[in-house]
């Protein structure tokens, strides 16, 4: 994570500016200046995510932290479950939170759709849960690095909370760690983190620049949830038969791959092909040993291994 920023984000406009100047195919992160109070007095730190489910756009991990003594601020800011709030309300809460920069610190990691599908479609299959956990751990580490005096950490869970909590406890034995379902509606500090994440994701989509130069595609992609008819239409309208979708889309989602099967050329990957070839080779019939004639390949003059290993053959026909 490269979360060292020269300029501080103090308004929603700054946030938009920050998001639009970043390369949106690579993950990037922002971490606010740590309030002096948070370096001196014990703090609570919350973590939540936004945009895990949608077929397009980045997934954003957010964190918020403040001194245990200043937690009343969170109640004053009306930090609540970000999903239960309207978009306008969330933006309003975040801009108020940004004004409290002497009391409350925050940070986000914007995980690009390209990074998400590249991870899920890598050879070693780096799962979305793993990506999520690593992002949460990265945010906690960043807070520690920047001098936040962490006392307790609250995290909204991915997968079974017990296992995730044990994992975080093993990494950070000095903090009181609570991993829970729906932590964003239970703990105000997680709500604050959730709002940071959710607003960042919404704004990232609003200022999204298509590297594919598809100006007409902007603002026509909807919420990104597979059930949204606008998103469905977008996947249909902006599908290139060779390349598929612009890289706003997470190719590894079944919604995307199903749409590709319908409207793009079929693509076969090398590794899968090789496996098939091998299994064909090993399928020698028992009866073939009793055949009077040798199979075709045996009668050919064998090429030297140098050529065979390199897939080289002389071409007389095309």
């Amino acid at each position: 994570m490269n979360g060292n920023n020269d300029d501080n984000i103090e308004t929603i406009e700054c946030l938009n500016e920050y998001l639009s100047t970043h390369n949106n195919s690579e993950p990037f992160s922002y971490f606010s200046k740590v309030p002096d109070d948070c370096k001196t007095y014990p703090c609570v730190l919350g973590i939540d995510e936004a945009g895990r489910g949608p077929v397009l756009g980045p997934m954003v991990y957010g964190t918020a932290f403040c001194c245990i003594n200043s937690m009343q601020i969170l109640a004053n800011l009306e930090c609540d479950d970000s999903k239960a709030l309207t978009e306008e309300k969330r933006v309003e809460i975040l801009s108020n939170l940004l004004k409290q920069r002497n009391k409350v610190g925050w940070g986000v990691e914007v995980i690009s759709p390209t990074f998400i599908c590249n991870s899920m479609l890598s050879r070693s299959k780096y799962s979305l849960n793993r990506v999520s956990m690593d992002s949460a751990v990265g945010l906690i580490r960043k807070a520690v690095e920047n001098g936040v005096n962490i006392n307790a950490v609250y995290v909204d869970t991915v997968g079974p909370p017990e296992k995730y909590q044990a994992y975080l406890e093993s990494l950070f034995p000095n903090f009181k760690i609570t991993v829970a379902k729906k932590a964003d509606s239970t703990y105000p500090i997680v709500s604050a983190a959730s709002i940071c994440a959710k607003v960042t994701r919404d704004q990232a989509l609003k200022v999204w620049k298509f590297s594919e130069d598809l100006a007409e595609a902007a603002s026509s992609f909807g919420s990104g949830y597979p059930g949204d008819p606008v998103t469905k239409k977008f996947l249909f309208d902006f599908c290139d038969p060779i390349f598929g979708f612009p890289q706003l889309v997470r190719f590894s989602w079944s919604t995307a791959s199903t749409a590709l099967e319908e409207s793009a050329y079929h693509v076969e990957w090398e590794a899968i092909e090789e496996d098939e070839k091998q299994s064909k080779k090993s399928r020698t019939l028992m009866t073939s040993f009793f055949n009077m004639t040798k199979s075709e390949t045996d009668s050919n003059v064998q090429k030297h291994n140098f050529f065979k290993r390199r897939n080289l053959s002389s071409t007389l026909e095309l």
Binding site: T114, C117, D213, D240, F243, G244
Partner: peptide
């Protein structure tokens, strides 16, 4: 024909070790 310069080349980047990086249909 394939719109390579529109969909593929904008995403080609060079890593520190000089190896190039890109994405095709979500595959790294």
């Amino acid at each position: 024909d394939a719109p390579v310069s529109k969909y593929f080349e904008p995403y080609v980047t060079s890593q520190e070790d000089g190896i190039l990086k890109a994405s095709f249909r979500g595959f790294p």
